[in-house]
Amino acid sequence: MKRFDLQTLGVTLFASLLVWMAAASVGLLVGSTGTIGAPTADQMSIRLHTHVLPASMIGAALAMAGVTYQAILRNPLADPYLLGASGGAMLASYVWRLQGVASIAVIGAISPHAFALAGSLLAITIVLLGAGWRGRLDPVTAILVGVVINSLCGALFMLLNAIYRDLPGSGGILTFLVGDIQTTASSAHVAASAWMIGIGGVLLMLMTPYLNVVRLSEDEARSLGVSVQRVRWGGLLVASFVTAAAVAISGPIGFIGLICPHIARWFIGNDNRKLLPVAAALGAGLLTLADVLARYLLGSPHVATLIPVGVITACIGGPFLLLILARIKQ
């Protein structure tokens, strides 16, 4: 493995930061009703705190989770959304809102995130159990089980909503099902997510050398002194942790974790030490741009309400998934 020095890290981070800043700048120029122009101080503050920073944070989290899932599962199709982790987290954080459940959970601002983490881990466990066979994990079967988990979580969500009607979500049933940048989440919840994503990001960055080793065969990894199982479980836990943090305040925004690692790979190759920060920056940038597009479209007379960003990422991610599947076939 090539030596990865501080200079390389600095250049990688700087380039990633530039990518994100370019997207963020566009995000600051587009108003909530599709207007384009230099913002006033008030507008700048609102766009930054309500759209650009949350979108960046959520996008980065999902992309980092995608890089990790793809590495540890050796599956190019792995993504928090397609693996069902987002769906599990979404359902669990909705369950937290049930009357009675919220009062039992006394951990304060962390509660929905703790529920989301449990949901995310449960979903991933089911996928691993469902798609694993004699220690091997078939990539397509894993995605298939993930899709089943997602459908099941969506159905259970609708069932709960039919019984309890409009729980205090942070964005309405539709936006919580397809994922959106929530503009009415409490600052405590957003801050809790930011901390979790930050801590998770640092942990994942520290794990990247091991993620590189996990790509090798189990014997090769062992010869390098790396326990593949330990890295896999650690990676799963931390990736689910950041996924849960993002989903708890946004709902399951799909495909960011799939698209961004692949785009990053086209530019910088497979070294996870570079891939993770670049994919995170791309995730932050892409979700910010998706949010910008949603706001821009609101300026059209044909669009009555803000389109959830989850709809936009799905429109981009669906064809992208088909493209990857076609390449796998070849």
Partner: peptide, 19 residues
């Protein structure tokens, strides 16, 4: 860690600050 913590702190300060 220090670099990422600085970025994180800036992010959190930003998210937590009322508009």
């Amino acid at each position: 860690c220090v670099l990422l913590n600085i970025f994180l702190t800036l992010l959190i300060l930003g998210c937590d600050k009322p508009a």
